[in-house]
Nucleic acid binder design. Structure first.
Length: 459
RNA sequence: GUGGAUGUAGUUCAAUGGUUAGAGCACCAGAUUGUGGAUCUGGAAGUUGUGGGUUCAAGUCCCAUCAUCCACCCCA
């Protein structure tokens, strides 16, 4: 037993103090802005019933849900013929009732339906909790990671979209990251599909391929469409459209262009009107970052029905750090129809990576104004302990080294843990009713009267 | 699920098939019993992922297995 090397499952992580502090800084900033917009927090259990989770994320998704083995004498219900098979998927139907939370959207839908009579709509909620996926880990992808979701449930108003877009702007202004919010609408994509005479069943494939534009470029995307046996005419029409839009930053020109090709195209025109409303009203809000209309933005998730958006960092190319959209029938799967919502998810893990890479964490979360009182032994406690507690009452971050260790060791400790000040109390100081305070950054040391300690640190 | 790479001290990495597997960082002690980051000296630290095989001889070559990392599918 004692020889087992301590490890953690792959794709999971420990967060040591300085990482944890930085992560908390991000979470705290998010919460602060969410609360400023009067979003309310909820939390849901780490585990959900499997029938809540299964079938919501597609076949691929079902495979990535962690299942929890039933407790007790769970094998007694397994049909005899199943003993012979080695079909794990079938076995789990009998052996597992519960699974680990896979995202925050499905639990939200479940929550809204369950609590519909106590919720006041529109329901503005945020939720910051870990989710688990039985995926194979790789760079920037983990089996346990946090999602930070904000949703507005139960209104069709496009003001909800506008609120989330301004929320995004404020969050990244607070984190001091400059970003671009790309905005599109699934109805515009449907309009384009209609314009290209695509069949209904080709639409999903169309969006999944289009979504790869950032990753593989226009030529790569067009190649994929060739592989789908699209005719040359369709491909060149699409190429022309994408070329026009990617060489143009002006949203009105893009809309006018689309307007000119969307003839008898109801769905497409509806999308254009929604986008127009959003961009027109964004003009009336003070925003720090860019918002652009990107008609190639597709997003993989197919439950989106209207506005979709995605946020990219201007300084570090890392893919999207935030994304979301409107879904018209989120709760239908749980038997509640006609509840529209719009939501957004902040990729805290990626935001962390970006901030680490370009050093955006504020200095004071790494170097705090911490004070350490050096321990000279039992005889000095009656002098030091009152100082300790009165400093804490004055809201100064302070502690007393617990052991009567060598001074060098205590100083090393203060140094290693980024204490800014050390207080030294020895015979001389006590004799004069003083303490010595050393600034660990400048190296300066002063003697001050015991009564002036608080004011010394308060300046 | 598919493919590729790598496993040596707490950590980052060395070691032509051939003595007792080494070094930097970190750790502990001392130089320095009231003052940190520097320097110097010393110390502790390993079943070379695990199990087989080839060989007079294996950290090194071969096979298997496990683990980790990277990419693909998919996703955040």
């Amino acid at each position: 037993m004692s020889n087992i090397k301590p490890t953690i499952p792959s794709g999971t992580r420990d967060f040591s103090p300085d990482q944890a502090k930085k992560r908390n800084f991000i979470f705290d900033t998010l919460k602060k802005i969410f609360e400023l917009h009067n979003f309310l927090p909820i939390e849901t259990p780490a585990m959900e019933n499997l029938n809540t989770l299964l079938g919501k994320y597609g076949d691929e998704g079902d495979k990535l849900i962690y299942r929890i083995l039933n407790s007790g004498d769970f094998l007694k219900d397994l049909p005899d013929e199943l003993w012979q098979t080695k079909d794990a998927k079938k076995w789990t139907e009998y052996l597992c009732d519960k699974g680990m939370r896979y995202d925050l959207t499905v639990p939200l839908a479940r929550y809204v339906v369950m609590h519909r009579n106590e919720i006041n709509f529109p329901f503005k909620r945020y939720q910051i909790q870990p989710v688990w996926r039985a995926d194979r880990p790789q760079k920037g992808r983990y089996r346990e990671f946090y999602q930070c979701d904000v949703d507005i449930i139960g209104t069709d108003s496009l003001l909800a979209e506008i609120e989330l877009i301004s929320l995004v702007d404020e969050v990244f202004e607070n984190l001091q990251l400059s970003i671009t919010t790309k905005i599109n609408n699934r109805k515009i994509l449907q309009g384009i599909a209609f314009w290209l005479h695509l069949k209904d069943n080709e639409f999903i494939n169309f969006t999944t391929i289009l979504d790869k534009l950032d990753k593989i470029g226009l030529d790569g995307v067009l190649d994929l469409f060739k592989n789908e046996n699209w005719d040359i005419e369709k491909i060149s029409k699409l190429k022309e459209l994408i070329d026009f839009c990617s060489n143009n930053d002006n949203w009105t020109e893009k809309i006018n262009y689309l307007d000119s090709i969307f003839k008898n195209n109801e769905i497409g025109i509806a999308g254009l009107n929604e986008v127009k409303f959003i961009f027109n009203n964004l003009n009336s809000i003070q925003l720090q970052n860019k918002q652009i209309l990107d008609i190639t933005l597709a997003r993989g998730l197919n439950y989106y029905t209207g506005t979709i958006f995605e946020v990219v960092c201007d300084e570090v190319p890392i893919g999207s750090i935030c994304g979301g959209g409107r879904y018209d029938n989120l709760t239908a799967l749980f038997g509640l129809d006609n509840v529209s919502g719009v939501g957004i998810s902040f990729g805290a893990e990626r935001i962390y990576d970006v901030m680490e890479k370009i050093n955006k964490f504020p200095e004071n979360i790494i170097n705090e104004n911490k004070v350490l009182i050096i321990n000279f032994g039992e005889n000095y406690l009656s002098y030091c302990l009152p100082i300790l507690s009165s400093m804490r009452q004055a809201n100064i971050k302070v502690d007393l080294y617990p052991d009567d260790a060598k001074i060098k060791k205590q100083f090393n400790y203060a140094n290693a843990l980024n204490y800014k000040y050390v207080i030294i109390v020895g015979e001389d100081e006590i004799a004069n009713d003083e303490v010595s305070i050393k600034n660990m950054i400048s190296g300066e040391q002063v003697k001050i009267s015991k009564n002036n300690i608080i004011s010394y640190f308060k300046i």
